[in-house]
Amino acid sequence: MDQIKAIRGFVRAVELGSLSAVAREQHTTQPTVSKMIAALEKELGVRLLERSTTSLTLTDQGKRFYERSKRVLEEFSEAVSDARGLTEKPAGQLRVNAPLGLGQLRLNALVLEFLALYPDIEVELILNDRFVDLVEDGVDVALRLAGSLPPNVIARKIAASQRYLVAAPAYLERYPEIRSPADLASHRYIGFARPANGEVTELSGPGGTLEIVTRSRYQVNSSLAIRESFLMGAGLGICPSWLVHDLVASGQLRRVLPEWSAAGQEASLLYPSRRYQSLRATLFMQFLAEKIPQLPGFTAPSFLR
């Protein structure tokens, strides 16, 4: 059995909605297409499609196989073009994952700029603050901030963001003045839920590096909620510059102990550990690697400076 041909027939059956439509497109007969897909199911040992006289319905296994099969066909076509030395045109869908806060505040505008440059590329941007399985979820490129990275991906560091203490002027006026890191223990601290190091914070400054134990009455797993909480005067905390750079510049937030800062936050591009990358994914990663270090609150990683 020609597996590529069978997979292509299966994908087109899903997209066109009937086996007879595939038969017409491929200039063959409906029974031929049906036998080809049945042979594919037999070889895989799973049922991909539930057939009726009027419709086709994907099984759960069929849904997963369909998503992966589309990418196999795209990569096969691109590999053939590359081997033949043909000029490849950037086109097709790109599935991108990124943190919610960074996506809404910064990345959304960059994606729209990228789409304007490449009108034949489509982007599905999925924003959440959890590590996704790039292969299982069909993600072409992920942008992640700090944290440990999964072992089955390739990571490319593209930018860094300084992390420092901030609070609203209204908060600072209500509570005792902060003259040294030791004063932080008696203040209302807002932090990210389930921080990697508990509530022990390392700050570096004129006195070297100190460990500060903080106690958060409020923790939240959203950088946007933390940003809003600072603005409301609910407390102080450490956050990356990209999240609050505009608020500090406008005076809505102030830096606390400006001589002190925490370890910076690194931004990395992740992609599945496979040898072949589509042109659209390569172009998108190149675009972000150039643009993100230029965003307010970001710099190029240290090894590029």
Rank of each mutant, 00 (worst) to 15 (best):
T57R: 14
L203Y: 02
D120G: 05
T28R: 13
L165V: 02
F230G: 07
L257C: 11
S20V: 10
T53G: 12
S52H: 00
P176A: 15
Q219V: 03
H27P: 01
E78I: 10
G103Q: 10
T282Y: 04
E202D: 06
S229T: 06
N108I: 07
G237Y: 04
A39W: 00
G297F: 06
V244K: 04
L94F: 05
Y175F: 12
M1D: 13
E259H: 02
S229E: 04
F298H: 13
P119V: 13
Y271E: 13
P296D: 04
L110P: 03
L184V: 07
A109V: 04
R254S: 09
V213Y: 09
D2I: 01
L56T: 00
A116R: 05
R194C: 03
K157M: 13
E211A: 13
S204M: 04
L127S: 04
G147E: 14
L117P: 02
P181L: 10
G235C: 07
F284Q: 04
F114H: 09
A185K: 07
E15R: 15
A182R: 15
A225Q: 14
L203N: 06
G205P: 00
V72I: 09
T57W: 03
L149I: 15
H27G: 13
A193M: 01
Q61R: 03
R64T: 05
